[in-house]
């Protein structure tokens, strides 16, 4: 009931200062909460793709199965790259908190480079599969595989685009609360993509290559 009192006290002032524009607190800004909710909906989208992959993964239609296609060491490198980029993205946010522009640029720059490396590897894998005649047209399994992994790749691509825009903003302008908020949202996005990749790594590659 102490809580109720707090609410009542908070209610006393008659004008409301909307703190959403000034706060950069990950857990108080309504913009960041809205973005968090968007990320949740994105997870549902991935869940549907995972479910479809789960249903179709045996429908190889006479084509190759994951066991024949996937090279685990290659994927491990991809995974470690993305994991490291998630870590450097966190360090970039620590620098943002200290308002240390140079460090922000270094760490986000590194994150960007790791993201590009990841994407390059993924595209290499895709090209290789397609050249071997195992494109998404080959079977239900490959359709589901390309769509699931490709959707993740598309998210990484848009994340990189966003990161590029924000990096150029950090170079050109002051660290306004608005900019910090956007950097925070980008970092949430990036961390979440890493989490999604853990499941792609486990369910698609590790289990598929068994």
């Amino acid at each position: 009931m102490k809580r109720m009192k707090v609410v009542a006290e908070a209610a006393l002032p008659t004008t409301v200062v909307d703190d959403s524009e000034t706060t950069v607190d990950q857990f108080r800004s309504k913009t960041i909460f809205g973005f968090w909710l968007y990320l949740m909906t994105d997870c549902v989208l991935f869940a549907v793709l995972f479910a479809t992959y789960g249903v179709l993964h045996n429908n190889i239609s006479g084509g190759p199965s994951g066991h024949e296609l996937f090279s685990l060491p290659f994927v491990l490198v991809e995974t470690l790259l993305l994991l490291t980029s998630s870590f450097t993205c966190g360090l970039a946010m620590l620098a943002t908190q200290r308002a240390d522009k140079k460090q922000i640029l270094i760490w986000f720059g590194l994150t960007f480079a790791l993201g590009v490396a990841f994407l390059t590897l993924e595209l290499t894998e895709f090209t290789k599969l397609i050249h071997e005649g195992n494109s998404w047209r080959a079977s239900g399994f490959l359709s589901a595989f390309f769509t699931l992994v490709g959707t993740h790749g598309l998210h990484i691509t848009s994340g990189l685009l966003w990161m590029g825009v924000l990096i150029s903003k950090v170079v050109r302008q002051d660290l306004t609360p608005g900019l910090i908020k956007r950097l925070t949202m980008l970092s949430l996005f990036w961390h979440l993509l890493d989490i999604v990749w853990i499941f792609i790594f486990t369910i698609v590659y590790l289990i598929g290559a068994r």
Binding site: L56, N59, S61, W136, R137, G140, T147
Partner: peptide
């Protein structure tokens, strides 16, 4: 809808009756 359009645009086999779709 995305998967259905991929079927139609890129020849995937999510929901087709052949090619391992369901």
């Amino acid at each position: 809808l995305g998967m259905l359009s991929l079927d139609r645009l890129m020849g995937m086999h999510f929901f087709t009756a052949e090619g391992g779709g369901n």
